[in-house]
């Protein structure tokens, strides 16, 4: 394992290399170097499976994290590669040329987070949300609760009391 990490380190400017609690090695790389790195992993090092392409919204840092987890079925190892991109007008290179089904992930991410993957087949097609006209819903600044409250009406007759506030009102209202 270390061998390949050394190898990657030599060839790509990776940083934040660390082992996750399940023994998964995770590292970050500049967005521009991702595709060459994945290509090398896939073709030269047996990381032939794209396990997941996931997005994390770090709203407070104005960043999106894209995590590409690839798997080497021979060695039974996973490698996670993180890429941080700007949240504003987010865009990332597509990897459907490496793994065709990445297009599905990318299509979903486009819809849910609003990250564009130019050239990814069907990336603009709706995936789950037919007729959605709001913010991409998985972005953290989309408030599901607020949306639900504005869009739907609550069942009448629901009201609750906070025990401490209620006790104050009952037992010592003006203290």
């Amino acid at each position: 394992m270390n061998e390949i990490i050394e190898h990657i380190k030599k060839r790509f400017p990776v940083y934040e290399i660390g082992e996750g609690p399940n023994g998964v090695i995770l590292m970050s790389v500049e967005a521009s170097r991702l595709v060459p790195m994945l290509t090398s992993l896939k073709t030269n090092h047996g990381y032939s499976i794209l396990v997941i392409l996931s997005t994390v919204d770090w709203l407070e840092d104005c960043k999106f994290q894209l995590t590409y987890i690839v798997n080497n079925p021979e060695e039974k190892r996973d490698l996670g590669i993180r890429v941080f991109i700007q949240r504003e007008d987010a865009e990332m290179e597509s990897i459907h040329t490496l793994w065709e089904h990445a297009a599905t992930f990318q299509r979903e991410i486009k819809e849910m987070f609003g990250i564009n993957f130019p050239g990814s087949p069907g990336v603009d097609d709706q995936f789950l949300l037919e007729g959605w006209d709001n913010k991409p819903p998985m972005r953290r600044d989309f408030d599901t609760k607020k949306y639900a409250e504005e869009t739907f009406f609550p069942r009448p007759g629901r009201e609750t009391n906070d025990p401490a506030a209620y006790m104050k009102q009952k037992l010592y209202p003006d203290e």
Partner: peptide, 8 residues
């Protein structure tokens, strides 16, 4: 839970 990532 402290900052971290995992795969299960």
């Amino acid at each position: 839970i402290p900052r971290g990532e995992t795969l299960v």
